[in-house]
């Protein structure tokens, strides 16, 4: 079972939910939590697990072989991203702009731009008992999250069997990284908060999920007397609200120092239990 935790905007409590949920569920199930917010992977800050593996992740970029080059200029013309630029008698390659499409390399008549590996980020795996955690971090200066998200997904697929419950902490927004992070999930939890901002961003996230044909439900974070704002919308759209995490200052304080929340705030644990029941009863996790 693969579940993703996503939201239309940042700061809604995605990471709070995924880290606490992963820990909570790991008391009964074997769980792997994967942080796919590769630009700002923050989940690890809240987990304190032992690192058991670290590996570099690569993308393919062209490398200029000066001796073979005749400065014909085809490479520059073939790159729609302007990642290859001819400067007088030099060819410059900008790895951050390169999408690894291979066009410049394979269209070069002189084979002067072979594709080579370039480090785009680091993947780390952590473990205690039944909780596994995987995160990838883009190198500073690397701008493209999607290839690293793909690699990280592959790693998790190849290293954890079907019986392991997989939770993915997705990047915020509605653009390509989110789509890459949620497209293989069986179910998506959309985290929102009961404010007009939260509602607006939830609507965008719902549109994205529908476009992707995903099954999804909503978790309301910082739930308070304004919940009707979200519940009215969800009712009208026939979307299930699975849990309501209360708005408490104590939760914000525990979060600020990176501490586990459900073991200290019983109301939080109750909501995680609802999610667990949903997983067992509706999604048939066993």
């Amino acid at each position: 079972m693969k579940i993703a935790i996503a939201s239309g905007k940042g700061g809604t409590g995605k990471t709070t939910l995924s880290t606490n949920l992963a820990k909570y569920l790991s008391k009964e199930f074997e769980v792997v939590l994967t942080d796919l917010d590769v630009e700002e992977p923050n989940s690890g800050l809240f987990l304190n697990l032992d690192e058991i593996l670290e590996e570099d992740k690569f993308k393919m970029i062209p490398k200029w072989i000066e001796d073979k080059c005749t400065l014909c200029g085809i490479c520059q013309k073939s790159c729609n991203y302007h990642a290859v630029i001819q400067l007088g008698e030099m060819i410059l390659v900008f790895p951050e702009l390169c999408h690894s499409c291979y066009a410049c390399s394979e269209l070069c008549p002189e084979e002067a731009l072979p594709m080579i590996k370039q480090k785009m980020g680091v993947l780390k795996q952590f473990k205690t008992d039944k909780l596994n955690f995987v995160e990838s971090r883009l190198e500073i200066g690397q701008e493209q999250a999607v290839p690293l998200i793909k690699e990280t997904n592959n790693f998790v697929e190849n290293n954890f069997g079907k019986e392991v419950l997989k939770i993915y902490d997705s990047p915020p927004g509605t653009s390509c990284p989110v789509i890459e992070a949620t497209k293989n999930a069986d179910f998506v939890f959309l985290v929102t908060e009961p404010t007009p901002f939260g509602l607006n961003d939830l609507q965008l996230a719902v549109e994205t999920m529908r476009e992707l044909n995903k099954d999804f439900g909503v978790v309301v974070n910082r739930s308070d007397s304004n919940n009707k704002l979200i519940s009215d919308y969800c009712d009208s759209q026939k979307i299930k609200i699975i849990a309501n995490i209360p708005n408490k200052r104590e939760i914000a304080e525990l979060y600020s120092s990176g501490e586990e929340i459900y073991s200290k705030v019983p109301e939080f644990a109750v909501e995680l239990k609802k999610i667990k029941s949903f997983l067992i009863n509706e999604l048939k996790v066993d």
Binding site: S78, N80, Y81, H99, C101, Y102, A103, E106, L107
Partner: peptide
């Protein structure tokens, strides 16, 4: 991704 390799 709009690379245009196919077009070429």
């Amino acid at each position: 991704e709009g690379c245009g390799y196919c077009e070429k």
